[in-house]
Design a protein around this nucleic acid. Structure first.
Lengths: 174, 174
DNA sequence: GAATATTAGGTTATAATATAACATATCTTG
DNA sequence: CAAGATATGTTATATTATAACCTAATATTC
């Protein structure tokens, strides 16, 4: 199994996965990307990136701000939003439109749309990048004559563990 | 070609289409649906629905509010949001997450996700409902074991006329 | 048809998200 | 180091959305 493409089973990292590895991997990828592009992953941007990566659940800008404010006196909304803008611009994070929240990108540097499965129970988001989905949209757009710039694909539902848990509940006394 | 599924060419109604027909059709479909479900399409809800349908471009809640306020003294945010909630709940309108705006639904009453092509130039949105796109997402979700509840699919780009216009610009002096 | 419950809407306040505008600091480059 | 470019600090405000509580209209039951 290649390292580049994770298995579908890995879409939602288990509750016991070593998240430190996720963060470390993301950070080093981000550093490499910024170095390559000649842009600066400043301390602030790096810190905001780490905070976004603090879990696989998308996190709101003001959540980030309140955490940032603990360590950085005078942090204000623009502090966070500017860092987020930078990270987004360079494909290091994605914005989840349906949640007004941000999540780390699993495949930074690649041109990609960002397709997400988002669990409404536990909040976890899994980034998928399904070529069939992309192809189906592109095909349809082409039929219509629409020139695609970017795609927002956010699927809400239950991740495997939460789905199973919900199923158990349904089996009870009722 | 059946009447139920419009042609791809009709996805973006031309600038010269009879929009009164769109609104009239939408209204009568909404009335039928509400009657069938035994819910009330009150004067306020009906009016908000008409305002949402005032064009094929998604419209923000506060835009709706300012228009509503012209004819309804004391209209406030909840006035609009409650009507929008009702309309959304019954599948009469869709929320465009990437724009924080609302647009009339082309196929009310049917269970459907709502897939949109949105022109960043003119603002028009075309609702598509591509079964391949749906199938591709469902397939992928199934592989992962994710239980899909709802999908947000919003594709940003240029509608045919705006794409052509942009192309012309590109041919100039440069 | 009066009593009651339910649903819809009015009204005020405030929460949550995001950006504008301008000042200061830091980094880069000649 | 000087000059320009980039990044951040700071204050204010815009935009989007909801909470909470009250009144009015409609539906239901007796």
């Amino acid at each position: 199994m290649s390292k580049a493409t994770r298995t579908p089973e890995g879409a939602f990292p288990g509750i016991r996965h070593d998240h430190g590895d996720c963060v470390a991997e993301a950070l080093s990828a981000a550093e490499a990307l910024c170095a390559q592009r000649g842009v600066r992953l400043t301390e602030l941007r790096r810190r905001v990136f780490e905070l976004v990566w603090s879990s696989h659940a998308p996190v709101g800008a003001y959540d980030l701000l309140s955490r940032l404010a603990r360590e950085r006196e005078g942090a204000a909304p623009p502090t966070v939003y500017r860092a987020l803008d930078f990270l987004k611009e360079h494909g290091l994070i994605h914005r989840i439109e349906s949640l007004n929240a941000f999540v780390g990108c699993r495949t930074p540097g690649q041109a990609h749309a960002g397709q997400f499965l988002i669990c409404s129970e536990c909040g976890m988001a899994a980034e998928i990048d399904d070529s069939r989905v992309n192809a189906a949209i592109d095909r349809r757009a082409k039929e219509i004559g629409f020139a695609v710039h970017s795609k927002t694909i956010e699927v809400e539902g239950l991740c495997p563990p939460c789905r199973d848990r919900a199923g158990e509940d349904g089996h009870g006394i009722g």
